[in-house]
């Protein structure tokens, strides 16, 4: 077995409120192997973005990491100090932000925003950094002469590409894509996903791919982790998850995207809505929406357990 690139163990993240902490990521354990694409699925508010930003330790207040370990290339990110974090960030792990609209500095040219990233990690002259920035823009399909343009002069798709060019700048080992396609139309979305795949094959980085669009995710990812209410519900290879989902929540999600489901019947959404994290239900957090729930589900928290080759689920009913 290959040694994992990223090894998250029992990670907990809290948001502190005046009425006490609210747990947004609850004892999550995950591995990402070198060169692998791991998809993270779940409704908005289920903790996906929180997890992503916690890995880079850039979650703003009132977030606090309250438990676990995050091993990345031989060191625990949770034990690093400020200069060590700065050296790790972007050089080894980069990220494409969810909203390309707000993630670029509106008053600095996009070229300069790439250049200062290159220069911050040393080793390049202003001239070579600029040349490299132009190269990166071309890699993601943006004409080189846009280097002196500003974010507001670009379309949404172009801005997202700039975000990807930025993430590639230092050829990191892991790139986190946080809902990179949410705000885009279908054609641009497909182009960008295609581009990410091509680049990933060429450069060999690993990807943490976050989206609420399970259909897209299954197309792109090697393995998929499903989040529900701050916890992992199921982790499995993409093919296995598509063929035989074990958690009722995953099954529900798949029914909501009939294009990926072999039956191809009418889309069917899961009744009810996700629980408030401030006051989650006891036992299995999905039980109020689960039509198969039994007494055990209402009392006992199901742990993630192996259900087959590389397949894990947190459901009392899965055998």
């Amino acid at each position: 077995m290959t040694k994992p690139l990223l090894d998250i163990r029992d990670l907990c993240v809290d948001y502190v409120t005046p009425h006490g902490p609210v747990r947004a990521v609850d004892r999550v354990s995950l591995e990402v192997k070198p060169g692998e694409i791991l998809g993270i699925a779940g409704e908005s508010g289920s903790g996906k973005t929180t997890l992503a930003q916690a890995l880079l330790r850039i979650l703003p207040p009132p977030a606090v990491i309250s438990g676990g370990e995050v091993w990345f290339e031989g060191s625990d990110i949770l034990a690093l100090d400020e200069p060590e974090l700065r050296a790790m960030r972007w050089r080894r792990m980069s990220m494409v932000f969810q909203s390309a609209m707000d993630a670029l500095n509106p008053v600095v040219t996009i070229g300069e925003q790439i250049v200062d990233t290159l220069r911050a990690h040393g080793g390049s002259t202003p001239r070579s950094a600029r040349a490299r920035a132009g190269e990166l823009l071309e890699t993601v399909g943006i004409p080189r002469d846009r280097i002196d343009g500003y974010a507001h002069q670009l379309s949404g798709g172009m801005r997202q590409r700039v975000g990807i060019a930025l993430a590639l700048a230092l050829e990191p080992a892991l790139i986190i894509l946080d809902e990179p396609i949410t705000a885009l139309d279908v054609i641009v979305e497909r182009e960008i996903l295609e581009q990410i795949r091509v680049l990933q094959r060429r450069l060999g980085f690993a990807v943490l791919f976050i989206t609420h669009d399970l259909a897209r995710m299954l197309q792109v990812s090697d393995r998929v982790a499903v989040f529900y209410a701050a916890r992992l519900a199921e982790v499995a290879p993409a093919a296995a998850l598509r063929r035989a989902p074990r958690h009722p929540y995953t099954q529900g999600l798949l029914r909501a995207f009939p294009t990926v489901h072999p039956g191809g019947e009418e889309p069917e959404s899961i009744p009810g809505s996700p629980p408030s994290l401030r006051n989650p239900p006891p036992g299995c957090r999905f039980h109020p929406r689960c039509d198969r729930a039994v007494d055990k589900c209402r009392e006992l928290t199901p742990e993630l357990r192996p259900l087959g080759a590389g397949h894990f689920g947190a459901c009392h009913l899965a055998e």
């Binding site: 930003q53 880079l56 850039i58 703003p60 974090l85 700065r86 050296a87 790790m88 960030r89 972007w90 050089r91 980069s94 990220m95 932000f97 909203s99 707000d102 993630a103 670029l104 500095n105 509106p106 008053v107 600095v108 200062d116 990233t117 911050a120 990690h121 930025l166």
Partner: peptide
């Protein structure tokens, strides 16, 4: 300082002085 572009600047591993002046202050000045 709570905006996405400042958070991205931080994620990029820039020196704090650069995050503050080039990203935060430059926009807050407007």
């Amino acid at each position: 300082l709570g905006s996405d572009y400042v958070n991205l600047a931080r994620a990029k591993g820039l020196q704090p002085s650069r995050v503050v002046l080039r990203y935060a202050a430059r926009n807050a000045l407007l």
